[in-house]
Design a protein around this nucleic acid. Structure first.
Length: 484
RNA sequence: GGCGCUAUCGUCUAGUGGCCUAGGACGUCGCCCUCUCAAGGCGAAAACACGGGUUCGACUCCCGUUAGCGCUACCA
């Protein structure tokens, strides 16, 4: 391994979409690389032909880019250690399997899946640990050659040493040890010529000079197999860091059917990449102080594996929502404007009918009331079209028998205004109320209902000012006619 | 079942033997502000799983129990 250069990889298998747990694993790798001036590598682990999903690799790459986790080496961008897709590295694995066979630390196994299945069932029945019984370890050289010559299908298994203790140190969990007695003679090369995860992973991590293996805790139990393999090859063992798992609300491993797990599900629901990244970073890591809001850049500066904790974390959507609110609020106006226009288009609203100036006023008015861009149309549809209906509960609460009459009077006052400002509207309303001899509320609430169709939202005079005099008058008249 | 990992408010977490009357954040509740809803401010309820040690002193160290999770495939 060269010098002390940090090289880490995210190694997903393309079985569908990027899982939020995968996003966090990728993020931690990315942050660690950036923080230590190292390289972040993407490697595709597509050694299971049965699980291959068309388009999954592109999807994975797109999603990673969406999140801002650009890799230094990997598919498409290339690098000096390619190819970065395991199905394109079959010859490499074959060569390394030959090495292991030669050293007699691996052996061919001709047992059929049916026999193995029966064996496991029997072991289970006897309450024994399911483990390959090494039938094929005892085959003679001649028997093996005959079988191969006869074209019998075989796998290659690792010959796990008897009765040794396998120790390794994990950056997050400290020293861990396993007895080799508990380690199965793992299949390394499948009968279809593809390597299993264990072989491909170790060979590639070595060849790609990976310095730190940062992955989910579900891999902790198979790490002894990997350590054994490194030793069998005579290679240095990389440093390991096994991340705590992301959990469902019931504390099981985060999975589909208990909510959304695909990053794109969240993207499509309107979550900002900044919020999702911030949220997922805080699941299992924190800087040790009270800060909650982080940009990717800040995370890069602050991240360290030493501060990653050991226990699983529940994916709690409410905090994510809050973070989305925070990040949306912190976004520059023109960026929100762009997102709002895109949202209007996808909501079937012609954005061209509104000037940028108008939309920016809407954004200013709604900023503190929206967590998602879609909230602009859901919480304040009245900025985009006149109310088609009036909230029943609000009518009941705010519309009095005299309201129509009051609003008529207010309309007269308003129409006399010339090029009114926000405070002009306010003063006009106060004048009208005084003339009528009623409190301002007698006009404010019905007016809000008239212009917005609902009972809540930004300050009334902000709404009226944004809508403009003509539109406000039109809406007052409609309300007088429609609300009984 | 076996092996491994883990264990602080409902949730995310701070805490590395005395600073802890256990801090922050989300959420919840109350008050203030107020034309409504938010935002904001103030405040409240809310946790060291249990039992043994070690120590002058344990949330912090050790052991055990319990619980949860992970792994236990020719899947990753």
């Amino acid at each position: 391994m060269t010098a002390n250069e940090v090289r880490v990889r995210f190694a997903p298998s393309p079985t569908g979409f990027l899982h939020v747990g995968g996003l966090r694993t990728a993020l931690f790798n990315f942050l660690f690389a950036r923080n230590s001036g190292g390289k972040f590598i993407l490697r595709i682990e597509d050694t299971d032909r049965a699980r291959y999903v068309e388009g999954a690799v592109d999807n994975l790459i797109n999603t990673l880019h969406w999140a801002g986790l650009n890799y230094d080496e990997g598919p498409v961008v290339g690098g000096n250690f390619g190819p970065y897709v395991q199905s394109e590295r079959l010859a490499i694995y074959k060569k390394h399997i030959e090495m292991l066979l030669e050293k007699r630390v691996a052996y061919r196994c001709f047992c059929t899946p049916e026999r193995l299945e029966a064996m496991r069932k029997e072991q289970e029945r006897q309450k024994l640990q399911p483990k390959y019984d090494r039938t094929c370890l005892n085959l003679s050289e001649n028997e093996i050659n005959d079988n191969v010559a006869a074209g019998k299908a075989y796998v290659v298994r690792m010959r796990v040493p008897d009765n040794v203790t396998i120790k390794f140190s994990d950056i997050i969990r400290g020293d861990v040890e396993f007895s080799s007695e508990r380690v199965d003679d793992q299949v390394l090369l499948k009968s279809d010529g593809y390597p299993t995860y264990h072989l491909a992973n170790v060979v590639d991590d070595h060849l790609m000079e990976i310095s730190h293996v940062i992955r989910g805790e579900e891999w902790l139990s198979s790490t002894p197999k990997h350590v054994l393999l490194y030793e069998a090859f005579g290679w240095d063992v990389p440093k390991f860091a096994h991340l705590p798992l992301l959990l469902n609300p019931d504390r099981s491993k985060l999975s589909k059917r208990q909510g959304d797990v695909a990053v794109e599900d969240y993207r499509d629901k309107g979550y900002l990449k900044e919020a999702l990244v911030n949220f997922v970073a805080l699941l299992g890591w924190n800087p040790g102080d009270d800060r909650e809001i982080f940009s990717l850049q800040e995370l890069e500066n602050e991240f360290s594996l030493e501060k990653v904790n050991k226990s699983g974390a529940i994916f709690n959507v409410e905090k994510l929502n809050w973070l989305n609110f925070q990040h949306l609020r912190n976004k520059p106006e023109d960026e929100v404007l762009g997102m709002l226009k895109a949202h209007l288009a996808s909501a079937g609203i012609d954005a061209a009918q509104f000037t940028d100036e108008y939309l920016i006023q809407v954004i200013d008015a709604m900023r503190e009331r929206v967590s998602f861009v879609k909230d602009f149309t859901e919480k304040s549809p009245y900025f985009f079209s006149a109310p088609a209906a009036y909230e029943e509960a609000t009518v009941k609460k705010r519309w009095k028998p005299q309201s129509a009459e009051y609003l008529k009077k207010l309309a007269e006052e308003l129409s006399a205004l010339e090029n009114p400002s926000k405070s002009d509207y306010e003063e006009a309303l106060h004048r009208t109320a005084a003339a009528l001899g009623v409190g301002n509320g007698q006009l404010i609430h019905p007016l809000r209902l008239a212009v917005s169709g609902m009972g809540e939202g930004p300050g009334l005079f902000d709404i009226v000012n944004i809508l403009g005099k003509e539109e406000t008058l039109r809406r007052i008249n409609s309300a007088i006619e429609s609300i009984k």
